[in-house]
Design a protein around this nucleic acid. Structure first.
Length: 160
DNA sequence: GCCAACGTTGGC
DNA sequence: GCCAACGTTGGC
């Protein structure tokens, strides 16, 4: 059997706080995905492997949409912000000896010259995706079929 | 800004 | 270990 292909995820972030432009503007264009405080999302972050694709999704904004792509460049390490009393993400229950929260590192790949909004994603067949059925989940695994749908949308948009 | 959905906490 | 209360997310 061939090596397992990298998998793909959708990662939500608020563009006002940390959007894809923030990531692209960083010198090394990489970031630790920290501050996630939800167990399901955490488990997904921990499951990520180097090379996995991350679709960058802008949430809580005028047009929630997939706006670009990242890739995992480092597996999850303990989330330092949970140890920092001054951080809004501080969590007294996460100890250095026994961390609760983890962050993989992502690198910017590209920003699309278009946005794939919810209406577009749903119309293309992603209505059954966790993006819609578990709408509060901020780190969402994608099936191969779902990735194909997104890739097709991207190819179509690039042609026009 | 509203509020539904739903994950998490805490009392029992 | 149940479940009500609470807090947060995130679309609209």
């Amino acid at each position: 059997m061939a090596a397992k292909a990298p998998r793909a995820w959708i990662l939500k972030s608020e563009p006002d706080t940390f959007g894809i432009d923030h990531l692209a503007a960083l010198k090394d264009k990489t970031t630790l995905w920290d501050g996630v405080r939800n167990f399901t999302a955490r488990n997904n972050l921990v499951a990520m492997e180097i090379g996995d694709r991350g679709f960058f999704y802008h949430s809580s904004c005028a047009v929630p949409a997939i706006v670009g792509e990242m890739k995992v460049v480092e597996k999850a390490i303990p989330d330092e912000s949970a140890f920092d009393k001054k951080s809004p993400y501080f969590d007294a229950k996460s100890k250095r000896e026994k961390p609760q929260w983890f962050s993989p590192r992502f690198k910017f790949v590209k920003k699309y010259p278009f946005e794939l909004d919810r209406e577009t994603l749903k119309a293309a067949g992603l209505g059954k995706s966790l993006l819609f059925t578990s709408f509060r989940l901020s780190v969402i695994p994608l099936t191969d079929a779902e990735v194909k749908i997104i890739e097709k949308l991207i190819a179509e948009r690039l042609k026009n």
